[in-house]
C-alpha cells in the first residue's frame, strides 16, 4: 500500500480555504482508516475529518494555519 497524502478536503461546495484547528492523532502515532484525524474550520462550520488510510501519521501542517483546499498537511505512512 502506498502512503496516503493528507490534504485539506473540499467539505463543502463553496469554500476555497480552511483553517486547521486541531490534530486528533499525534505525529508518529498510528491511525486506522475511518478514524478521526483532524479538524478544519471554514467560515460556516467546523468539520472533523476522518483518516483516508491506515499507517503512521506524519504532520507537516500546523494548527492555526489557513490552507487552500487540496493543500498537503501530512502523510499517513503505510506500515508493513
Amino acid at each position: 500500500m502506498a502512503d496516503f497524502v493528507v490534504r485539506i478536503p473540499r467539505v463543502s461546495v463553496a469554500i476555497s480555504e480552511a483553517e486547521l484547528v486541531d490534530l486528533l492523532v499525534a505525529d508518529g502515532a498510528p491511525v486506522t482508516e475511518g478514524e478521526p484525524l483532524f479538524v478544519i474550520a471554514t467560515d460556516k462550520v467546523e468539520s472533523e475529518i476522518l483518516a483516508g488510510g491506515t499507517g503512521v501519521v506524519r504532520w507537516s501542517g500546523s494548527i492555526g494555519t489557513v490552507y487552500e483546499i487540496g493543500e498537503e498537511i501530512g502523510k499517513i505512512e503505510a506500515t508493513g
Binding site: 490534504r7 478536503p9 473540499r10 467539505v11 475529518i49 476522518l50 483518516a51 483516508g52 483546499i69
Partner: peptide
C-alpha cells in the same frame, strides 16, 4: 463521499 471527506478526492 469517503474520498471527498478525507481529502483524497477533490471535487464537488
Amino acid at each position: 463521499s469517503r474520498g471527498i471527506s478525507s481529502g483524497e478526492l477533490l471535487t464537488v
